[in-house]
Design a binder for these strands. Structure first.
Ligand SMILES: [Mn+2]
Ligand SMILES: [Mn+2]
Ligand SMILES: [Mn+2]
Ligand SMILES: [Mn+2]
Lengths: 221, 221
DNA sequence: CATTGAATTTAGTTGCGGCTAATTTCTTTT
DNA sequence: AAAAGAAATTAGCCGCAACTAAATTCAATG
């Protein structure tokens, strides 16, 4: 009993939306760019397969089995992303688009070979944790760059890969995992952050800063 | 207008069957393991897309466009096969099975990167020609090992990848592209060939020998 | 507590790529 | 030249995953 590509994409989407509480039909439909009735129909199929539990009119939740499968697909995605950037030299955004397809057809054998070739990485190129073969995944408690107040010394840990365009831009200006960032000041009224990225001054908007996760080194600049 | 995986597999199958003359519905159905009416239905769709010409009750032929697409898929397949064996170390049979899926999702970008990483190979691991980006492919005029009479000195050029099990066995006994083979004698009645593969004596059946293509070095052993 | 509006589900349709059963067409045999 | 047989096509169906339009349910508001 192997799952269709659609099945897998739904499970992955539910997993990613799960942080905001129970996953609503609408949130799922929005994320997958399908009409709400399509999401309802798929939810019922997944519930029949015992991969999710569905409380009609309230929302959907992954079962243990469902979560395990979601994590397996995410592992595939992130390993492929890492492989495509590290070994074949693709750009982050390109690698993400490719991985969206490859994640569904990667065999366990090739997964293992890629993992070995990369030295069993624990993070993908943009800092997201790669689940283990057993379906374990690191939980990060990093801060969003949009939440800092000014004066901090930070290190970038992860940038969200939801937006391909943003991803490309972040890489260009060096806002990548490992980069050191000093926050000069946050101008709330203007919605801007005055940053120093690896010594380079930059003015950055609050909106995209929501997608950059940082760790605070110290607050005494 | 991009073609579905099924569309692509049909075009590839028609291309591979084309050598035996016009491609019949049955041959196509057999190869793709579908029922004849399924093949008829798909043939009509491909004809509507001008990728094949269909003469009802007689058979189907690729158009220029159709052949070009078939060759592109075959290029993908053989590049991936080569990449998986050379770079990731998969076995031939495993690589072939994987390539059957990868061929449909390989982007031009990744295709180019793999091609470069491999040094633009012209042959896949089992000796089949890799079509160029422009859709050109080398025409081989090699002999089947089943056609030799005895006494020849041969060099293996290609082994067919139609049968995964056979492919694995051939590799084991060293009947691979580049191997030197001396034919001691062919016993027609028994359907056996007495070979020396790189110095090692082997008795080989005529049936599998049909899938091994050789070049004759000389006939004066 | 009745009303209203948004979210969700149900009902019914579509395209794709399979299938079986029935029919048609071509070829071979008598 | 008719009949038989094999191959191909047509007719009608199914599961999947999408869609729109209509009905239902829940929550918020007056
Ligand atoms: Mn990603
Ligand atoms: Mn995907
Ligand atoms: Mn092959
Ligand atoms: Mn294929």
């Amino acid at each position: 009993m192997s799952l269709s590509e659609a099945n897998q994409d739904y499970l992955k989407a539910i997993y990613k939306l799960r942080a905001h509480g129970t996953v609503t039909t609408q949130a799922l439909a929005d994320r997958l760019k399908v009409a709400p009735p399509s999401a309802t129909a798929m939810i019922k199929k997944l519930a029949a397969l015992q991969l999710v539990t569905h409380t009609p009119y309230y929302g959907v939740q992954l079962t243990q089995t469902g979560e395990k499968i979601a994590l397996e697909i995410i592992r595939h995605h992130r390993l492929v992303e890492t492989y495509l950037t590290e070994v074949l030299g693709l750009g982050w955004d390109q690698a993400h688009i490719e991985a969206e397809r490859w994640e569904h057809i990667l065999s366990e054998e090739v997964e293992a070979r890629m993992d070995a070739a990369l030295g069993s990485p624990t993070r993908d190129p943009h800092g997201a944790a790669i689940p283990t073969l057993n379906g374990e995944i690191a939980v990060d408690d990093w801060t969003r760059l949009s939440e800092v107040s000014g004066g901090e010394n930070l290190i970038v840990r992860r940038v969200s890969d939801e937006n391909a365009e943003l991803l490309g831009h972040l890489r260009e200006i060096g806002l990548v995992p490992g980069a050191h960032v000093a926050v000069q000041r946050a101008v709330g009224a203007e919605g801007t952050l005055h940053l120093e990225i690896e010594g380079q001054a930059h003015v950055f908007g609050i909106a995209p800063a929501r997608f950059v996760y940082v760790e605070t080194l110290d607050e005494t600049l």
